[in-house]
Design a binder for these strands. Structure first.
Lengths: 341, 341
DNA sequence: CTGTTAGCGCCTTCAG
DNA sequence: CTGAAGGCGCTAACAG
């Protein structure tokens, strides 16, 4: 039907207007929700538009409405096994609300400034960030009045809208269950020192252990599989009397630690209990059956998008933090007493 | 320095021009690579620009240059454990070339039409697709003269630029090694029926087996962990005399199959050899040591971006297919003879 | 090298 | 309800 026309590379509202014998503004109105066009005329215009394959040029629209429909999603460790799911969910939910994802995958945290420069240039409507933002960067975003929602991050300084999984509740639960089951000698493998998620989790676990009068051994990690292995080795080297339980700041390290333990002939959870955090896919595999806390990705991403959308609509809304409890996955990598209740 | 000025939400080239006492076009030239501006004037302008926090509005730029700097990246299974790495690499390489990623994560393949509608609207400069595109969709893209590169996909019908990992070479190698080591009774777990990658791999393996006079048992899968488990069960049920080797169309299913085998008391590779395809992270973990073919993600993503960039610069370039050999990872999930050479 | 002049495609008052 | 007219912020010829 439409194949006879010369392959115009771009069809504008003027083309539609001419073909339909109406003014350009009439065409424009047809594509605006709260329009006011005579039904008959609208039908004719829409028919022509379809025929010609016309749809409003989002670029031109943005220029004038000052709404690009773009949301910058800034993510640091795309490879982290947990973010892919987050990204897929964010993307789905954003475009359910008519917004497009402009993706920035950070190679290194130092790239943030370069990323922000592009963010300004593209006049995005808002930002969702799962990356570390410095106070100066937060300030720059705020100064431009750009709505921002942090994902699993806390803002240092000024409050900012954010969505987080409750580290304290999660770690507290894990520690209490482990202690109740008789574990006394603890080791913790942390994530990167500049990761607020890691710091939160480690601090929460340590604090809870302190309440029980226990002090854990510590090993630094990088949130990856190899770190888990290395972390376990390091902890065992530190632990004269051996280790009862290992708390890893994420699942990937917990899995690495389990494998390292087995490689040394330690049974998990027979000789050593191991717990993680996140609830990534592999944690549930037979080989690991990891005892962990699963982040409610569905609810968290929905909240992030909702928070952002609200703030795009009403920029003056105050910052709001939404904290979600994780779900305890018992798994089988930790020796626990049957649930108390 | 710049904090004293009232927080204009948007600063334009006119603001800079006025502040620097030059014309607006002079400002514009300063931001164009091949400019021709008097050094002194340029310095002054750039200083003012920096002071005011000015950078050209990408939206306005796009409208006139007909270059948005946006590349649509369309991916179907973000959760597939293999794509996150691809996405991260694509993103990195694209913005090394000054292009931004407009991400479309497909929920269902049926969403493609909706995605394409948005792609048109945003006047992207090109598309990289790791998703199934129907002939009509390919035609629509071609008709608009939009450069397109398929990632690990073949076009049905008209040729299209693409980057693939050589399934035939990979499966051939795996099969030959397995046969050489004495395996005779084969099972294959395929991916989704509409996945060209799956079809290619299964066909290649089957064809190679045929050359050896062997006919494999088949089980359908969905590329996920659970499919691997189910696939193994299904194959064992079909196989009266037992199974020597299992070829999974991807690593995730291979891992699922390994776990299912172990759950039934079968040793891998003692009782059953298992091979996969992709070389995802978990394949290398101790628990699996999967024998597989690793896709050269670095080279493949670089090629995809290069192919696309070339075609954006010169739209008339003919379609080109780049085929990359995967790297054989011996692992330890298959009983193989030492390498022939 | 520089400023002036037209638009890019569209939305949005503003009179009819 | 409808068309005409004026930009959004910028680039790209043009004359100087």
């Amino acid at each position: 039907m439409a194949a006879d026309r010369p392959p115009r590379t771009t069809v504008t509202s003027y083309d539609v207007a001419r073909a339909a014998g109406v003014s350009q503004s009439a065409v424009s109105r047809c594509f605006k929700p709260g329009a006011s066009v005579a039904p008959a005329k609208r039908d004719r215009i829409m028919a022509v538009a379809r025929e010609l394959g016309y749809a409003p040029n989002a670029i031109a629209q943005s220029l004038i409405t000052k709404r690009s429909g773009l949301v910058a999603v800034i993510i640091s460790n795309l490879t982290n096994l947990y973010y892919p799911e987050v990204l897929a969910e964010l993307s789905r939910r954003l475009d359910a609300r008519g917004m497009r994802v402009l993706l920035f995958a950070l190679q290194a945290e130092s790239d943030v400034d370069a990323v922000l420069a592009e963010v300004w240039r593209y006049r995005v409507d808002g930002i969702i960030a799962a990356a570390r933002l410095l106070p100066a960067q937060l300030a720059a975003i705020a100064e431009r009045g750009l709505p921002l929602v942090l994902y699993n991050r806390l803002s240092e300084g000024e409050p900012v809208a954010s969505v987080c999984c409750d580290s304290v509740a999660g770690e507290t639960l894990l520690i209490d269950r482990l202690v109740a089951a008789g574990h006394r000698r603890f080791g913790i493998i942390s994530g990167p020192a500049d990761s607020s998620v890691s710091n939160e989790r480690v601090a929460a676990a340590t604090a809870r252990l302190a309440l029980h009068g226990l002090v854990p051994l510590l090993a630094p990690g990088q949130f990856d599989h190899a770190s888990g292995r290395a972390g376990l080795e390091s902890l065992l080297a530190q632990a004269d009397g051996g280790l009862d339980a290992l708390v890893a700041a994420n699942d990937l390290m917990a899995i690495g630690a389990i494998e390292a333990a087995r490689a040394r002939g330690l049974a998990v959870p027979g000789d050593l209990s191991v717990v993680g955090f996140d609830g990534v896919g592999p944690a549930g595999w037979d080989s690991f059956r990891l005892t962990t806390i699963r982040q409610p990705v569905q609810r968290m991403t929905e909240a992030a998008v909702a928070l952002l959308a609200e703030r795009i609509a009403q920029p003056e809304l105050p910052p709001e933090r939404r904290l979600f409890a994780g779900e305890f996955l018992p798994g089988a990598s930790a020796r626990l007493d049957p649930c108390p209740e």
